[in-house]
Amino acid sequence: MRLTLRVWRQPAPNAEGRLVTYTADDVTPDMSFLEMLDVVNEGLTEKGESPIAFDHDCREGICGSCGMMINGVAHGPMKATTTCQLHMRSFKDGDTLTIEPWRAAAFPVIRDLCVDRSAFDRIIQAGGYVSVATGNAPDGNTLPVAKGDAEAAMDAAACIGCGACVAACPNGSASLFTAAKLSHLSHLPQGQPERYRRALMMVAQMDEESFGNCTWFGECQEACPKDVSIDEIARMNRDFWMASLFERDEKVSTGTG
């Protein structure tokens, strides 16, 4: 296969960026998308040009490092698939692919296709944990969890924090991410004591990070490589208003803005 790539090149965080056209020859259908970029990068290096920078780590769809807009769709055309797990058989010989970094005010470009997603880390830091007395691991089944709750928590916990939800959202909203990080704890007994405080703190941090507001376009759910559902957002909102209306003292102690 031979493809034309239009790739966003930007040498540094505040530098001018632009789409640069490259030709990718000798692409085989069973290459992954990142392997295809590796080959292009090898060619660039041989010519003495700087390779296209992109984030990746596990290359098996579990770490959340990779991610780019491919022809206007986050992680490309294959549903529920990360960029590293996308294969070139999803494209045809002669296709032109426009490849851009995630775009959001909260995700500034570091270089080319790499963006700074530390806003997500700060949302987690604001409350995405449970406070427990550590020690030995508890005996199995000392804390029974119903099957349905375990499943629901796992569905939310599937979030790998790649940022595709923000990238795909016309509002640049991080609602799906934040909601998933709330839900995987709020479905479990261990997550109950701090449940409402957590909702207030994480939502406040989400607002602080200049993300936009959810208008239920549903694009995040469609883009999510882990199929996290927008129902998590409904759950986040419910926890938020329950917290605001009924857990006043907890609210004061958080000191969120």
């Binding site: 239009r6 789409l19 769709v73 775009r103 959001a104 016309p170 909203s173 883009a223």
Partner: peptide
């Protein structure tokens, strides 16, 4: 707020389900 959050647009952006 949302307009500020997405001040820079994509060259190509295809909405899928909106």
């Amino acid at each position: 707020t949302s307009a500020r959050a997405r001040s820079e647009d994509y060259a190509v952006h295809r909405l899928q389900v909106a």
